[in-house]
Design a protein around this nucleic acid. Structure first.
Lengths: 228, 228
DNA sequence: CCTGATTGGTGTTTAATATACACCAATCAG
DNA sequence: CTGATTGGTGTATATTAAACACCAATCAGG
């Protein structure tokens, strides 16, 4: 019984989709590739996994190496392994995504990429490999999580907000994700009654107008269980 | 610039979680392993991917080889790649799941497994590898899809029903997935108004009591879009 | 063929949740 | 001091969900 396998193996990479809301638009972080194939093309940041690291750790490492980004909570999203998706060789890629508050990330081109930049989903460049497909899938998954999950808007919306946020900030994020304007009073009533949110005591300042009270999401707002 | 990579590569497998409702319980299909490691232990069906097949095709092939199961709609679920999860070697596995109507599958132990059997989720055997973790994750995902998705019960419930079903059958499935009894009249009202369901004209027969009208889900009942 | 057992099928009333809608308050810039 | 800008609040109406009971159709068995 052979314990060491000699069968051919695909390579494994990770790809990481970082979404954020900037300038009131949903945007994604892309890098410009340095090496072949697709040198010079825009792509989702990512790269080969090492033998001794878990998938998510490889993704975090690549994110650091290519975009100078650290400290983002990654959620695994989907794995792509169609033969031919990489022109060099059989490559299976595990895609992760992260939803982050705006301003929390300063993306700079790091060693493995020649540039790193935010793109609104409405205005994307051509992408390397099957990255356009991956991005489209991620966008749809996000839409499902956001719009379908809790009848109106799911808790993923909070991932786009900083830990402490004003109700107006929250409303803005929910509006962008849902693509429609919401009534201020109804939104506040709904947010406070649905999501167990507490006032922090802090206020916004230096805004040029009346300051807003700050709130935070009390931890522990998750899915229910299935019997059996 | 090297186009052929000599770096070490993990092996890639697929694992397939087949859920069905049998005897009014949510059950999962497991196989008993023939080979090492974990020979004789129960496990989620699955196996190594080939170089020329897509991930889902490899999963379908393994399902056929190990459990004699064909023709199930697989949905990719999650990928597991923690170093050490397979005692032999670095193995990354892509997990799929399928939700199928009861009676639609006759599982028989096929060539690569010594047995294939349904287990209620309440009464699972010890599992090989990290399969208990994978199964727990799948169960939770299913719970989220079912319970959270549409405020009460999502369209995945229909995956457990045959193409034509009576309203009582539907109610039974929804009750099992939600773990609570539902009011017959309210359920029917809700089902018919929410899901665009049409009468087929057919009836159940040979049930020993009044026959029930048959319905089907009109195709096209999906998620909304995200702007931008 | 008559009876009982079993599941199929149907509306209305009440409670809960969601929606529509307008004004005063606090800060900052000039 | 004034105007511009965003923060903050309540009520009335419409929609959606929940509770609740009886007759109908088939089949099995006497």
């Amino acid at each position: 019984m052979s314990y060491t396998y000699r069968h051919p193996r695909p390579s494994i990479t990770t790809d990481i989709l970082i979404f954020s809301i900037r300038e009131r638009k949903l945007q994604v972080l892309l890098i410009q590739r340095k090496g072949e194939p697709f040198a010079g093309a825009w792509a989702i940041p990512g790269g080969f996994i090492r033998m001794d690291e878990d998938l998510v750790d490889g993704a975090l490492r690549e994110l650091q190496e290519e975009a100078g980004v650290t400290d983002v909570p990654l959620v695994q999203f989907r794995t792509y392994g169609r033969p031919g998706r990489d022109p060099r060789d059989r490559v299976v890629t595990v895609a992760f995504m992260a939803l982050i508050p705006s301003g929390h990330i300063v993306a700079r081109a790091a060693s493995d990429a020649s540039d790193a930049q935010w793109f609104p989903l409405t205005d994307l460049p051509a992408l390397a490999f099957d990255h356009a497909e991956i991005l489209a899938d991620a966008r749809q998954r996000l839409a499902e999580d956001v719009t379908v999950s809790v009848q109106r808007t799911g808790r993923v919306a909070f991932d786009f907000l900083p830990a402490e946020f004003s109700l107006s900030q929250a409303q803005s994020v929910f509006e962008i994700l849902r693509g429609e304007e919401l009534d201020k009073r109804n939104f506040r009533k709904w947010l406070l009654s649905t999501w167990s949110i507490e006032e922090t005591g802090g206020q916004t300042s230096g805004t040029g107008h009346r300051p807003a009270a700050l709130y935070r999401l009390t931890p522990g707002t998750d899915a229910k269980d299935l019997p059996g």
